[in-house]
């Protein structure tokens, strides 16, 4: 087997690709509507919103920066965008919402790096605050309706037949991939996540890298919040509630480590597509959407277990070799 084939066979992304393909085939065979381009477009546009947030999470996790406040950021930026949209217009609204997201990233990064608060608990706390602020800005849980304008364009219109959210997701994914795989800055993030002490002794600023990481996750969540507001045509304070778990599940499913130092943008894209395909297919099959939550949990644990096995060298290649050896051995012993 060539080195490339061997490495491909050992990558976690491959499992996910096979799993995704199997899911697509299964649902296409079972439901005539599933395979239509209208459904796929809708599915992809839906996946794009959380996908953008997942890109930020992937980059942040590379540096070991856990951020459980992304759902709150999504809601707040959406609500702020809607609020500003009704008062000063769409472009300012978009910029304003992004500014809020950046501010959230700075606060998270400062609390975690400057004061050394455990990121898990710190961002869990800021998540509550952000959600509360979203309700404050919105005034009521009905949210703020957004009239036609730039935000709705971003959320619902198309560029050369492709919905804008998908285009943005694709662009951000490529940027994220290039950053992590090919730039010194991205490698520095991974080094910091893998062993902060080693990174520091090599002259890499650990706190700085982690601040950028929190900025990335909050910034991406801000973009996702604007996209979501555009898609639904309103800024909803309860938007994306509980979806941080879905995003993290998808990212971990893709092979990114929750403990930093190991991150794959391609895996996260596949992870989000898989999770959303499952949801879409189950809805079409009229299976309760709650099944999706359950399956997501199962896949999360299974994925982490598989990655662990792989780190121990127990991948499909290893399995195949073992089976082959077992089959061969009696023949060798035979006279």
């Amino acid at each position: 087997m060539s080195r490339f084939a061997l490495r491909a066979a050992r990558s976690p992304e491959l499992y996910l690709l096979v799993l995704l393909a199997a899911t697509l085939v299964w649902f296409s065979a079972n439901n005539p509507f599933f395979g239509t381009s209208a459904n796929f477009t809708g599915l992809a546009a839906g996946a794009a919103v959380l996908g953008v947030a997942a890109m930020g999470v992937t980059v942040a996790l590379a540096a070991g920066a856990i951020d459980f406040s992304i759902a709150g950021t999504i809601a707040l930026s959406g609500v702020v965008a809607a609020w500003l949209d009704t008062r000063v217009g769409g472009v300012v609204a978009i910029l304003g919402a992004l500014a809020v997201a950046v501010l959230v990233g700075i606060v998270n990064g400062t609390v975690v790096t400057r004061f050394g608060i455990n990121p898990f608990i710190a961002t869990l706390a800021t998540a509550g605050t952000l959600r509360g602020l979203a309700f404050l800005v919105a005034g009521s849980s009905a949210g703020i309706v957004i009239e036609d304008g730039p935000i709705v364009t971003i959320g619902q219109h198309e560029i050369v037949g492709i919905p804008v959210p998908i285009v943005m997701f694709a662009v951000i994914a490529v940027l994220g991939w290039a950053l992590l795989a090919h730039t010194p800055a991205g490698r520095a993030l991974l080094a910091v996540g893998g062993n902060p002490e080693a990174a520091r002794l090599s002259g890499i600023g650990v706190a700085g890298a982690q601040r950028w990481a929190y900025l990335a996750s909050a910034g991406a969540a801000g973009v996702a919040g604007i996209l979501l507001a555009g898609r639904t045509g309103s800024g909803l304070p309860q938007a994306a509630a509980g979806q941080e778990l879905l995003v993290y599940s998808a990212v971990i499913l893709g092979g990114t480590s929750l403990w930093g130092g190991r991150a794959t943008v391609i895996g996260s894209v596949l992870g989000i597509l898989f999770v959303e395909t499952l949801r879409n297919g189950l809805v079409l099959e009229r299976v309760s959407p709650y099944w999706q939550t359950i399956l997501q949990g199962v896949f999360l644990v299974a994925a982490v277990w598989l990655v662990r096995q792989q780190q121990l060298g127990r991948d499909p290649v290893w399995l195949a070799q073992r089976i082959a050896r077992r089959r061969r051995s009696p023949q060798v012993e035979a006279p």
Partner: peptide
């Protein structure tokens, strides 16, 4: 003394860490 290396990165990248 305590190996200041990043276990999740490649050997080559560790050798050139901080000055790729």
């Amino acid at each position: 003394q305590e190996r200041a290396l990043v276990p999740t990165l490649s050997v080559g990248e560790n050798v050139l860490l901080g000055r790729l």
